[in-house]
Write a protein that binds this DNA or RNA. Sequence first.
DNA 1: CGATAGATTGAGAGTTTTCAACCGATGTGG
DNA 2: CCACATCGGTTGAAAACTCTCAATCTATCG
Lengths: 219, 219
Amino acid sequence: MLLNIANKCPNAVDLGPELREIAQVRIVTKGQNVYEKDETPAGIYYIESGLVGLLGLAPNGNETLHRVFGEHYFFGHRSFITGDKYHATAMALAASKLMFFPFSSIAQLEEKYPKLLTHLAQVLGRELRQAEERYNDLTGKRVINRIIEALIFLKNRYPEYQWTRREIGEFCGAKTETVTRVLTQLEKEGFIEKDGRDINILNAQSLLTFSENLELENS
Amino acid sequence: MLLNIANKCPNAVDLGPELREIAQVRIVTKGQNVYEKDETPAGIYYIESGLVGLLGLAPNGNETLHRVFGEHYFFGHRSFITGDKYHATAMALAASKLMFFPFSSIAQLEEKYPKLLTHLAQVLGRELRQAEERYNDLTGKRVINRIIEALIFLKNRYPEYQWTRREIGEFCGAKTETVTRVLTQLEKEGFIEKDGRDINILNAQSLLTFSENLELENS
DNA sequence: CGATAGATTGAGAGTTTTCAACCGATGTGG
DNA sequence: CCACATCGGTTGAAAACTCTCAATCTATCG
């Protein structure tokens, strides 16, 4: 995974006035689904405030946290652009204020909002890169390295959100119990500190170095 | 993974005359790299004839076959659009005739070739879906199911190409030896037939059903 | 305070990999 | 055209990682 701690939210963008005009506000509570797998998109969402996760479901019941959308992120754009049905479910991880833009088709974007289309294409490109790098990690890294990187990534992006073991595991392809075990080890080694259910990373840089050293031993 | 046998090549598209005008032809031989990870893109490629694979490298040396580009596919578009360096290496899997379009920036696409940008955005969306579905498969399916689906997918898309065990494994996250073992089993069960190094799928539909039944036993 | 969701811990199981040896096909240079 | 090198494929045994299952504990919230 690309860990760019400096650039926390590369896909965040401000809305122009012409988009604000056609926005429909939608408020969702924590745990509420914004849309569900197999529904047909009728537009694109934008997060004014809050946090939304995109959850995929494997046939055996395994859930995957594919992407996390934070403030000033668009989401729901992939399915809209391809004209697919949604391939995953968008769930509010925190109470959120959303904007919905009811577009009719990608042709409308191309004609009336070319800047938006360009932005979304770039977002898709970055999301694709991240998906492929995470795929690589799943085949080529130990679970401890994946958990460390997921922890740092998620905490770095959304420090205010209290990530659960389950979510960390769903993001990096690990079971809840495995995340627990790794976190316990990391606490013993002095890299993190548990604060109730929350996790404090004491030194992200040295934790990353620790992870890299583990990887070197493995090749 | 989305197995849509009917629609073999959803991202294939014909070149318009205005694009042909600015095309630079490039011939590559089997095994030759078109571009390599970390290089900076200076345009976009299109396959007139042949086959190109996008290969990612995990830190432990594991290679991943992320995507396969066939005739009338664009490739190299992701990095160009995001303005990244390439995150993976494009290698010709067969002798290929390529077109290279030396664009300066995505702004140029937006202004002069909006239809192309729209097409590429849709391609990115489908590629992202596929990447995320493959990620799901890796966490939620047995290796035998992944190998069966990879085999059918790759053979269906490019029947003329003789996929190696290594490439099948790199596509679905399995080791060469594991692919061999599974293929041996599938041959014993009568679903496939080995022909030298090549593999013939005798009945794709019944093989898929076999795979699905295995999955049901597992949940 | 009780209920519920999340977290922890342990023991055991199982899938897939690793390592190593060997075989077979393909292609090249003498 | 053969000998040989090389690449890809096969097979087996053993190891290793991670998961599964089950029991227990702890936050958190109504």
